[in-house]
Design a protein around this nucleic acid. Structure first.
Lengths: 209, 209
DNA sequence: GTCTATAGCAAGATAGAC
DNA sequence: GTCTATCTTGCTATAGAC
């Protein structure tokens, strides 16, 4: 008898793993707005009041979903690096194992740039804010950043071994130069004035042969 | 008689143009410390209290020398762009009118990088902080930035006309790519691990022929 | 889940003593 | 010229009502 009652009152087994839809929707909306504002204004320049206002919430209410501003930023920036990592890895993999190195590098450049400039506020927020977030958050993100770096290192080392890089170019310096040029485009690229194709073409022409 | 007295009491003609040395020294020290902190931490992340502490002054005392944080930053960032402008222009001019385009571009890259990474906290503060300063300050700096841009535009247009750029490279896109790669080096370059020569060589190899 | 209200703090800036 | 003291504002974060 006790058994039956207990069973009836107990919440469903997966209760903690399946949060109600409303909370999940709010959380998602907060992340989206935070990514957009972090991208546009920067980490320190964006207040929880700003984020709340665009979500239609008071600043204090955000703490139901995130323990702190830093934790919210951690989630945004972590998603940002994961997205560009996945986009680049799958663009390169999608070419198949026989694709020439020049095509692989072009695909990686195009995917990074497309994700950064067009696809994802999360990725652009990561690129723009990372240098300015608290050190603890930098540490938290360092592994995911290294994982993404590894993709590029492998690509450029392979290209170098296959003589697919322009002559006299060290693959590690090329990696830093290419990603620097791409990331800096956040500061000047205007989506209203065209897509990133021109920059892609220029970078491929400069660094591959 | 009145005439004589008046003349005696009047401050020396150049009084306003020659401020006492002590004020000038303090002002200079404030600018140096501000440049260093803006470079290392960012504009918003640096407080007037931080600057005062390193100068050996209270935050309020800074207002004897500058009307506001924004005006202090304006002076730092203005000096920063002027310095890199002068360094690049004179490095290129120093090669003489007969120098090949490839050498001129290499000199410009080297001078920009050397000023940014080694020579001047003012320049690195400008590059790091500009995207995050108040809009009014951006407007105030826009002319000096355009003046510097003009140097690079002239250089790359000339190089393009002389067929000195690598094939398939548009000079305006090359300018944005080159300066992006150089400016982004602020985020990864470690002066303890060597000078910027490797990056200079890579950029010249990639963009010129 | 979101609100109101507020604690607690740090920022930029100002006034007047010295 | 610099200090002390303080004003005002805005921020992150918390507590408790609903």
């Amino acid at each position: 008898m006790t058994e039956t009652i207990t069973r009836d009152l107990r919440p469903r087994p997966r209760a903690e793993e399946r949060p109600p839809k409303r909370a999940e929707a709010s959380r998602q909306q907060i992340l989206d707005v935070a990514a957009s504002l972090f991208r546009a204004r920067g980490y320190t320049e964006t207040s929880l009041r700003d984020i709340g206002a665009q979500v239609g919430m008071k600043a204090g209410s955000l703490y139901y979903h995130f323990a702190s501003k830093e934790e919210l930023a951690a989630e945004v920036l972590r998603i940002g690096v994961q997205r560009v990592h996945e986009a680049v890895a799958s663009a390169v993999a999608g070419l198949g194992p026989e694709a020439p190195m020049k095509a692989r590098i072009e695909a990686a450049i195009a995917a990074h740039l497309e994700t950064l400039l067009v696809e994802s506020d999360y990725t652009s927020a990561h690129i723009r804010c990372f240098p300015y977030v608290p050190p603890s958050l930098k540490t938290e993100l360092s592994q995911a950043r290294r994982d993404y770096e590894t993709v590029w290192r492998g690509l450029l080392d392979e290209a170098s071994a296959a003589k697919a890089l322009a002559p006299g170019i060290d693959p590690e310096v090329a990696r830093l130069a290419i990603l620097g040029a791409l990331n800096w485009s956040l500061e000047w690229f205007d989506p209203a004035r065209g897509r990133p194709e021109e920059l892609i073409r220029t970078m491929v022409a400069a660094f591959t042969r």
